[in-house]
Design a protein around this nucleic acid. Structure first.
Length: 279
DNA sequence: CAAGAATCCTGTCAGC
DNA sequence: TGCTGACAGGATTCTT
């Protein structure tokens, strides 16, 4: 599922193909996504010129010369597929399709329909209900140990749950929270409020490095993620703990006291961690 | 107010 | 082989 690194990669792929181009056709095949897609969305896009792209947390913004912005969230199963000029067979679960003036085709495919689309004035992006309460960008200047500590202060919930809260920091999902906590050697069970001082100072760079490396790798994924460029097959997951229950832990090579990577369930979601080194 | 559960949806996979 | 059920996860909404 797309978390910040995947969304960033998708956005870059979309920008490479769409920026500076005109959209000659927009088609909504299914408007019942996570929320109903505004009826006029396709009409607004038809004939529009794409000026730039931005990302906020897991949301992609496509800005138009008209002063409108398309807001896109991929949910859990959403992916963008780009195909070159030529005959194209509509795929299953292809809910939304753009065609450019140079005849490329950009499709949103989302089997579970947890994704969303909206149209809003570019000038009102910051106050959009889905964006207004997002926390700082983890790769931006506002994501510091001091500010993270402040956001976690008083929170009597596990750090795992707190980091999944998009109001604390925007863009992390289950996989990268597990990875970042492993890197910071913090237990997912640790009370959020106790992540301050040296621990917060350890966690922030761990999150930054985890995300930066994943973006550099081109974004990793679950099972069916496809590059926005259309190319398949670089599913090179480099996860150290996610999905690796029972496997040897990288922190403890040959240590008899390490039982390998453990899996527990928190808030109904899997957490993977090394019980020996993550405290 | 905060924390956790339930919810939406469908493809995938384990087990019988 | 085919069916059934559990599971996956983002983010809102509901419940406690």
């Amino acid at each position: 599922m797309p978390e910040l690194p995947e969304v960033e990669t998708v956005m870059r792929g979309l920008a490479a193909r769409l920026q500076g181009r005109r959209i000659v056709r927009a088609t909504m095949n299914r408007a019942d996504l996570r929320w109903p897609v505004p009826p006029g969305l396709a009409a607004t896009l038809t004939g529009a010129c794409v000026t730039s792209f931005a990302r906020r947390g897991k949301y992609i913004l496509m800005r138009l010369a008209s002063g409108d912005s398309l807001l896109l969230h991929l949910g859990m199963s959403g992916r963008m597929v780009i195909t070159p000029p030529g005959p194209a067979l509509p795929a299953l679960h292809e809910h939304f399709v753009l065609q450019t003036d140079d005849d490329w085709r950009i499709a949103l495919i989302d089997p579970r329909r947890f994704g969303s689309l909206d149209m809003l004035p570019t000038s009102e992006e910051a106050s959009h209900p889905l964006l207004a309460s997002l926390g700082p960008e983890p790769l931006g200047p506002d994501f510091t140990a001091a500010k993270l500590s402040a956001a976690l202060a008083g929170r009597r919930t596990p750090i795992k749950a707190a980091l999944l809260d998009q109001r604390v920091v925007a863009g992390l999902g289950n996989i990268y929270v597990c990875e970042a906590l492993f890197r910071a050697r913090l237990s997912p069970r640790r009370l959020a409020a106790t992540v301050a001082g040296a621990r917060a100072a350890r966690l922030v760079p761990a999150i930054v490095a985890t995300l930066t490396e994943a973006i550099a790798a081109g974004g990793s994924s679950l099972r069916d993620y496809v590059q926005p460029s259309g190319e398949l097959g670089y599913f090179q997951h480099a996860w150290k703990v996610y999905g690796r229950a029972g496997i040897d832990c990288e922190h403890c090579p040959g240590a008899p006291a390490c039982a390998g990577i453990s899996r527990i369930v928190q808030s109904g979601r899997s957490s993977f961690f090394c019980a020996r080194t993550q405290r």
